[in-house]
């Protein structure tokens, strides 16, 4: 199962690869990375159903995570990939908007990887 991580911080890639190294080694999970909303859309376009789950940061230069969420839910209707939003601004407004746009979950930074791992495993089953 493929997970697309969208974040403008490039070290997020190294962090995920190491945090989930056991799962990657055991072929439980596969990660792909995009460093902007635009890049993520491009990836999804060229690899339809390439990702079952999308983990996106909200606050990125250029296309925001919320914009990306809206476009994904709009374009990929059946079945739309699950989208989890991650943000440093854990305020109500961001949360409400994400939920309105159909986000499947909402996490705040710093990411609790133990909790995230459990959530991902639960969703994969």
């Amino acid at each position: 199962m493929k997970i697309l991580v969208v974040d403008d911080e490039e070290d997020v890639q190294a962090l995920f690869l190491q945090k989930f190294r056991k799962e990657i080694k055991g072929y439980e999970m596969e990660f792909v990375f995009a460093f902007s909303g635009e890049e993520a859309l491009q990836y999804l376009q060229t690899n339809e159903h390439g990702a079952v789950l999308i983990l996106s940061d909200i606050n990125m230069p250029g296309m925001s995570g919320l914009e990306l969420l809206r476009l994904i839910k709009e374009r990929y209707e059946k079945p739309p990939p699950r989208v989890m939003m991650i943000t440093a601004y854990g305020d109500d407004e961001n949360y409400n908007q994400a939920m309105k746009l159909g986000a499947d979950d909402f996490l705040t930074k710093p990411v609790d990887f133990v909790a995230l791992k459990e959530k991902l495993k639960a969703k994969l089953v």
Partner: peptide, 13 residues
């Protein structure tokens, strides 16, 4: 916050 998260995460890792 961002760099501090990385510091915490990578030292944990």
């Amino acid at each position: 916050q961002n760099p501090l998260n990385f510091v915490n995460n990578f030292s944990e890792v």
